[in-house]
Write a protein that binds this DNA or RNA. Structure first.
Length: 259
DNA sequence: ATGGTAGACCTTCTA
């Protein structure tokens, strides 16, 4: 089973690329982030025509996450717990009814810039809510995949030049510690588990020829519960998609789990 | 050291 995550930076601006990528890569399950549209504006018809079931948790202009699956899906959660005052659409969780079922979440973690503001506080608070929920998921002893744009550079090996990122919310010690606190509950970073190269980036700025010069960061992650990690066979950053015309600033990451 | 690009959308916010 092939499971991918991709921050598309507007699903409607990226529709042509999304369809091309789905046909080319044939993922079974897809986590999308930054839809930048409400549910009704999601381009369901052309995606369904490729054989996907769709769950959308959209929002006007900003954020928005979706799940696509060639298997039937049952939505189990829209938004993290304790989110009465949280208006952002950043979390969507479902059970994928594959022969060996998988619980999967599409995650768009807050960016948090600039540091020292309410946005950074929101990021850290959101990460603590995610940590608490992720701990509960492990207690279920199921195959769980938390996939998405985590907006965290876990280590200096995950960026081109650490000094460029020291003032950025994505590389703050607090952000990295909060990320470690989630992973250390017992999740496996699929990229690290397959022994992939360091400096395998998933995001490059649109400006200053960042992609051409490979000045990027690895912030899109798939975190696997032990029951999912046992089935992990491969993990790949699909770098070539960032080189297509009118790309997202993120590129897809695809993990393969035994069926 | 700074400002560059992209997307949504009404002129500025977010990333």
């Amino acid at each position: 089973m092939r499971i991918a995550t991709w921050n598309v930076n507007s699903v409607n601006a990226r529709l042509e690329l999304l369809l091309r990528w789905l046909e080319e890569s044939q993922p079974d399950v897809v986590c999308l982030q930054e839809l930048k549209c409400v549910d009704e504006k999601f381009p369901s018809e052309p995606v369904e025509a490729l054989g996907y079931n769709i769950l959308v948790h959209g929002q006007k202009s900003y954020n928005g996450v979706a799940l696509l699956s060639k298997y039937p899906m049952e939505e189990v959660r829209r938004g993290l717990p304790d989110g009465d005052e949280d208006t952002h659409s950043r979390y969507l969780e479902a059970i994928v009814e594959a022969p060996s079922p998988i619980r999967i979440a599409s995650i768009y973690l807050p960016n948090g810039n600039p540091i020292g503001t309410e946005k950074f506080n929101y990021k850290l608070a959101w990460m603590e809510r995610l940590r608490a929920h992720a701990a509960g998921l492990l207690a279920l002893e199921e195959a769980v995949v938390l996939a998405g744009d985590f907006n965290v550079i876990p280590t200096p090996l995950d960026c081109d030049k650490p000094s460029n990122w020291v003032d950025d919310a994505l590389f703050q010690p607090e952000s990295r510690a909060a990320h470690r606190a989630i992973v250390n509950l017992g999740y496996t970073d699929a990229h690290l588990a397959v022994g992939a190269e360091p400096h395998a980036y998933t995001y490059w700025d649109y400006f200053r020829d960042a992609f051409e010069n490979d000045r990027g960061i690895r912030i899109d992650h798939l975190l696997l519960s032990p029951q999912a990690a046992d089935r992990l066979e491969a993990s790949e950053v699909q770098r070539h998609v960032r080189g297509w015309e009118r790309p997202s600033d993120h590129t897809p990451v695809m993990a393969t789990l035994a069926d």
